[in-house]
Amino acid sequence: MTENYDVPFDDIDVAILDALRRTVALADPVPPSLVGDIDFTLSLAAMNAELAALTTEAAAVRAASPENAESVTFTSSTMTLMVVIGRDDSAIRLDAWVSGGGITVEMIHGSERSAAVSDVNGRVSWFPVAPGLVRFLIQPLTAGGRPVITPAIEL
């Protein structure tokens, strides 16, 4: 027997969808940290930050272990940020080059933020860095410029 489909909803339909909602919530729950992470990202966006594009595909980076993940490059309308992910002993080390010296780059790791200023070669680095998702926030060099925020990459 096949139920008629071209008819209005009835109480059984609504009850089935309610049961399905509960089931889906059990089968594939929303990560508990997701809403907080979004709030944080949006608070950065409220600074009128430009979202940079990830030139290297995120999946390719994730598929690689930190030992062989060579670099990730982000580009925006005003700057380029290349991040090299490496290891010193057992800890993760990040070396990054931004297009210019004297630029403040913040590494955002969960709710923690760690700022560094690029040297004359545009280099900034962080060590040691814990595994997890990180983003980078590049402050504008000139007053009135837009900060740039990158998509998250997983270390």
Binding site: T2, E3, Y5, D6, V7, P8, F9, I12, D13, I16
Partner: peptide, 18 residues
Amino acid sequence: IGPTRGRCLAALRTALLS
């Protein structure tokens, strides 16, 4: 789907009720 049941929900309903 909405306001009518639609084929997908009809298929699930048939399976469940049987």
